[in-house]
Design a protein around this nucleic acid. Structure first.
Length: 566
RNA sequence: CGGUGAUUAGCGCAGCUUGGUAGCGCACUUGGUUUGGGUCCAAGGGGUCGCAAGUUCGAAUCUUGCAUCACCGACCA
């Protein structure tokens, strides 16, 4: 490709609205342009990267036995009604109508479509297992799109769905996919970790996320400092404190805490440590019998909403109660709620349940209790793990302490079970001639997000430093003063012909620009190898080679140029 | 959806307090100059100042409403 016939679209200045480095560099290097909130055009350079990522994913999926299809982005509402996600999915699902006023959705994912295909096309156990994938545009009407293509509303995703008769067979394919994902992210040149994950709204059991480690990540990943354990914080278990609960020595006492509306203020007022207090949160219950549930965590801990939501008593999604419900239930403001004397179910976090002589709200504005002890002062409660782990906690794997890092989720694999197959009546005849509902797995990779994640991990102050496998061009030819030197021009042209004739993806910078401008552009775009042609070295028949990753420069015989691409 | 802030040329910004002919840098066009790290000089093109209404002789500037965008919180590849 010649720059004179290409749309380079590089920018000298950083657009004001781009916050994270990958978004800034994607705009500056001319990879994408914003069209509307969460919607992007992929410019030629960006598309090249996207296609390379896509191709690696495709190759490894195929190698792992999956077969490619392409499903429509627009899907009929009846399929979603069948799976009951028409009601469950919420406003993230963009719904629309055609001219006949029939309802459709823009596909945020494709379980419904693929399940309906398989139930029609597959009738016998002999045709299974089957693993089908596609690389396709998804649409999710995110509440808040952000960070460029990292969380766009429209994005490119590889999604695969496997179908099985037995859970053993599903587990086998799941493991195959796990291994394929590791190969994919290795080939992409990313520093990644598979982590144990919650299944979320898709349901089922058994799930791993693949995270690219980067400070700008939106997820907290929990590691053990002395084992291979890694999990999303949503999933990481907070172990119960070891040993017996200390014996209380105090008796309950009501104390005035005027103006102390937060845990910190209460602790300061009473001159005690935050971890000797508990906070009580009121959330919606799952049943009409118990519309409000009290959750109790230690003052210095955070509620883990996913863990809470997974408890059967609690409504999903987790919803905090309204002001009115607070008044009806405890007749005081949020800052003074406590677990004592409530007529609603009380669920206490393991760490909070280990406290003795602690402080809690008195359900009376401006008052707290001190010297509170479980079983003495209240007995009607249950204990569960409902908090986020914090750094220094013992690792759930039993070895070492917890360390927390930020990650960008680029892949997620699930064992779905029969949720969709059952709802949509997808089964086959078994060997014994009986109908058997299938069990499913699903496996996603955020293709467009990978492009952003790769930049987050590979950049410097000059621009992007692409891993070789996904660089938009393998190399760039940068001639010095081609307009003035016939010799430079001829050499550069010949080099370009030679490289392109053997299929090397090279960008020939034939603009009439000063060297500095060209260097700056190619470093911004992140081309791994610059081939610099100048008068300076032509007497010796040499060109200069500059490596974008290492910064190393060296001289090379022109005739050896091909050796760079072995 | 709640909170915060923004909207003036393709991009980055000033002007608004105190109303009076819309400006700077980059980019773009033309000519020259320079040529191994974003040269320099000169001339030039480009803006319904987000939209609407109001106040006023007069609004980018003041008032009100709306829209869009971004950031912080709950969802997810």
């Amino acid at each position: 490709m010649r720059t004179s016939q290409y749309l380079l679209s590089t920018l000298k200045e950083t657009p004001a609205h781009a916050e994270v480095i990958s978004h800034q560099l994607m705009l500056r290097a001319g990879l994408v342009r914003n069209v509307a909130s969460g919607l992007y055009t992929w410019l030629p350079t960006g598309l090249r990267v996207l296609r390379k990522v896509e191709q690696i994913v495709r190759e490894e999926m195929t190698k792992a036995g999956a077969i490619e299809t392409l499903m429509p982005m627009v899907q009929p509402a009846d399929l979603w009604q069948e799976s009951e996600r028409w009601e469950d999915y919420g406003p993230e699902l963009l719904r629309l109508q055609d001219r006949h006023e029939r309802s459709f959705v823009l596909g945020p994912t494709h379980e419904e479509v693929i399940t309906s295909i398989i139930r029609n096309e597959v009738n016998s156990y002999k045709q299974l297992p089957l693993n089908v994938f596609q690389i396709q545009t998804k649409f999710r009407d995110e509440i808040r799109p952000r960070f460029g293509v990292m969380r766009g509303r429209e994005f490119l995703m590889k999604d695969a769905y496997s179908f099985h008769i037995t859970d053993e067979c599903l587990k086998k394919t799941y493991q195959t996919m796990f291994d394929a994902y590791c190969r994919i992210f290795d080939r992409l040149g990313l520093d990644f970790r598979p982590v144990v994950a919650d299944n979320g709204s898709i349901g089922g059991e058994g799930s791993h996320e693949f995270h690219v480690l980067a400070d700008s990540g939106e997820d907290d990943i929990v590691f053990s400092d002395s084992s291979e354990y890694a999990a999303n914080i949503e999933k990481a278990e907070a172990l119960a404190p070891v040993g017996e609960r200390p014996h209380g020595t105090q008796s309950i006492k009501e104390v005035a805490t005027p103006d102390a509306k937060t845990i910190d203020a209460v602790a300061t007022t009473l001159n005690i440590a935050v971890n000797q207090t508990v906070k009580t949160l009121l959330v919606q219950g799952a049943t009409e019998d118990h519309p409000v549930i009290a959750l109790v965590v230690r003052g210095d801990h955070q509620l883990n909403e996913v863990k809470a939501e997974n408890l059967p008593q609690i409504s999903s999604p987790l919803t905090f109660v309204t002001e009115e419900q607070v008044q009806q239930t405890v007749n005081c403001n949020i800052g003074s709620i406590g677990p004592i004397g409530l007529s609603i179910p009380v669920i206490v976090d393991r760490s909070a349940a280990h406290l003795a002589d602690f402080v809690c709200g008195a359900n009376k504005d401006g008052f707290h209790y001190t010297g509170v002890n479980w079983d003495n002062d209240l007995s009607n409660y249950t204990v569960a793990d409902i908090r986020n782990v914090v750094e220094g906690d013992p690792s759930p794997c039993g070895k070492g302490k917890i360390v927390i890092k930020r990650g960008i989720e680029v892949g997620h694999i699930f064992q779905l079970g029969n949720k969709y197959a059952k709802a949509m009546n997808c089964g086959v005849l078994t060997e014994s001639g009986k109908n058997q509902t299938l069990t499913m797995g699903c496996y996603g990779i955020g293709v467009s997000r990978i492009v952003a994640a790769a930049i987050e991990q590979n950049h410097d102050k000059y621009g992007i430093k692409w891993p070789k496998a996904i660089a938009p061009f393998q190399a760039a030819i940068v001639p010095m003063n081609m307009a003035k030197s016939e010799r430079v021009k001829e050499t550069a042209e010949n080099l370009y012909k030679q490289l392109t004739s053997v299929g090397i993806d090279v960008l020939f910078d034939d603009r009439k620009e000063r060297p500095g401008v060209m260097f700056a552009d190619h470093e911004l775009i992140g081309t791994p190898i610059l081939l610099i042609v100048g008068e300076r070295n032509l007497d010796d028949n040499k060109i200069e080679v500059k490596n974008r990753i290492t910064g190393e420069k060296s001289l090379l015989d022109i005739t050896d140029a091909l050796s760079l691409f072995d």
